[in-house]
Design a protein around this nucleic acid. Structure first.
Ligand SMILES: [Mn+2]
Ligand SMILES: [Mn+2]
Ligand SMILES: [Zn+2]
Ligand SMILES: [Zn+2]
Lengths: 160, 160
DNA sequence: TGCTAATTAGCAAGACTTGCAAATTAGATC
DNA sequence: GATCTAATTTGCAAGTCTTGCTAATTAGCA
């Protein structure tokens, strides 16, 4: 699934209706590479469809996830991020700006624990945490780099 | 840091006090292999120290994280789970019961994205999702296994 | 053109976590 | 041991994110 055309098919297959709201959200989500939050999407959707509700955005995202059209990503920075790319890929998270970018990792799919052999693995996810080039650059230019905080701590601190 | 003895040192080093609450939480956390939530810990702590507040549990966990004594784990199932093990290890999450177990993965630390080379990596995390042996067993005994839901969907559904 | 089940919008409420301020206390000082 | 004070704990209000509920609306079908 990638084209809006087959979106109708996917929805019908699930006994669901193809509403303007659903079409818009699906479209916005595929135009967006940033792994946005529901709120992010809501803002974008509102611009093109004034009156659309945040509730509908959440509902649609949940449906699409159920239909296997997208995945949720939780990096512990508050709101859930969503990802229209359900193919084989992984993520690099910048601990400074929170950006999540797609990355590919050779051999990731075949990684296995050296212990816990009695566990049926359905999925392997790799997450890299670090600093993106943009943040690294601005950081060198004398920004106040304080003592190291864990990614989570940082995420939580930035909420304030 | 592992022993309660050095806990005092760690706290002092940070200009902090060694309170009974902090000692208890630290102890409980090291006795616990389940990657419990703050609420889980609060329940355990309350048993031994009636009157301790949930607020204090959260506060202490945050402090310990800042001090590098523990890490937070977010698997998208609601509450944050905490992990007293800050050493090199990874996790296997059961999509059925939510259990998180520690696993080791050979070569995980040296994994690198094949793309995004302009990213300074501080940490590599691997998460396996699947079904634990306990769930797999009970599942075979005719339990009602419904259609596949994503891990997150399942986590959210189980909240209701 | 009507019918009806599905969907939307709006708002209340739930789950988890943090802010705040008054009361308490660990640890230093005398 | 008694005193002092900054740090800590509590309790509760409030914040953030997400979902429950239901009246009004609408897509898709006859
Ligand atoms: Mn992605
Ligand atoms: Mn662990
Ligand atoms: Zn960055
Ligand atoms: Zn299980």
């Amino acid at each position: 699934m990638q084209s809006p055309a087959s979106l109708a098919v996917a929805y019908r297959a699930n006994g669901r209706k193809l509403t303007p709201q659903r079409q818009l959200i699906f479209q916005l989500m595929h135009e967006n590479e940033t792994h946005p939050t529901a709120e992010d999407l809501y803002a974008q959707a509102s611009a093109q469809m004034p009156g659309i509700s945040l509730r509908t955005v959440y509902q649609t995202l949940n449906e699409l996830a159920e239909m296997g059209e997208l995945q949720f990503i939780e990096i512990g920075s508050g709101a859930t991020r969503f990802d229209p790319n359900v193919g084989d890929h992984h993520h690099a998270v910048c601990d400074s700006c929170g950006q999540i970018r797609d990355v590919h990792v050779r051999g990731a799919a075949t990684l296995r624990p050296t212990d816990s052999t009695d566990f049926v693995i359905n999925e392997v996810g790799v997450v890299f945490r670090g600093i993106c080039s943009a943040c690294e650059t601005s950081r060198r230019k004398g920004s106040t780099q304080r003592g190291a905080k864990s990614p989570v701590q940082q995420a939580k601190a930035s909420k304030k």
